[in-house]
């Protein structure tokens, strides 16, 4: 099993969610995040004082999938989240040792 984490532009969340549902992903965790990569932040002005907001709002999306599905899921996320402009985000996968469904106690792939 792998944990796939994607950092994407917030307004792309709906598209990514739909794409993941289309490849059979049944659940996900989404949280609001902020950070920066190569994308610069933006400037805000309050009563003439400028503030550089260098941490840009992003959405972090996490799904755990069976090893066989990893590539398909990553491809789906990338295709749906891409605008081709700076700040589109990152996707990565790391191994997961185990997973338990709390309600039933099921373990492993059955609990995904």
């Amino acid at each position: 099993m792998k944990l796939i984490t994607a950092i994407i532009k917030p307004f792309k969340l709906d598209d990514v969610k739909e794409a993941l549902e289309a490849v059979g992903v049944q659940g996900m965790t989404v949280s609001e995040a902020s950070g920066f990569g190569r994308q610069k932040g933006h400037t805000e002005v309050y009563r003439g004082a400028e503030y550089t907001v260098d941490l840009v709002p992003k959405v972090r999306l996490e799904v755990i999938v069976d090893d066989a599905d990893v590539d398909a899921v990553i491809d789906a996320i990338v295709a749906a989240a891409q605008t081709g402009r700076i700040g589109d985000g990152k996707v990565w996968a790391i191994p997961v040792e185990t997973i338990v469904r709390v309600r039933t106690g099921e373990r492993g792939v059955d609990a995904i």
């Binding site: 902020s34 932040g41 805000e44 002005v45 503030y51 550089t52 907001v53 260098d54 941490l55």
Partner: peptide, 17 residues
């Protein structure tokens, strides 16, 4: 050039040039 809500101090705050 403004945002209505600033709920978190994690979104920067560096003075502009």
């Amino acid at each position: 050039l403004e945002s209505a809500y600033d709920f978190t101090s994690t979104v920067g705050g560096v003075l502009g040039p």
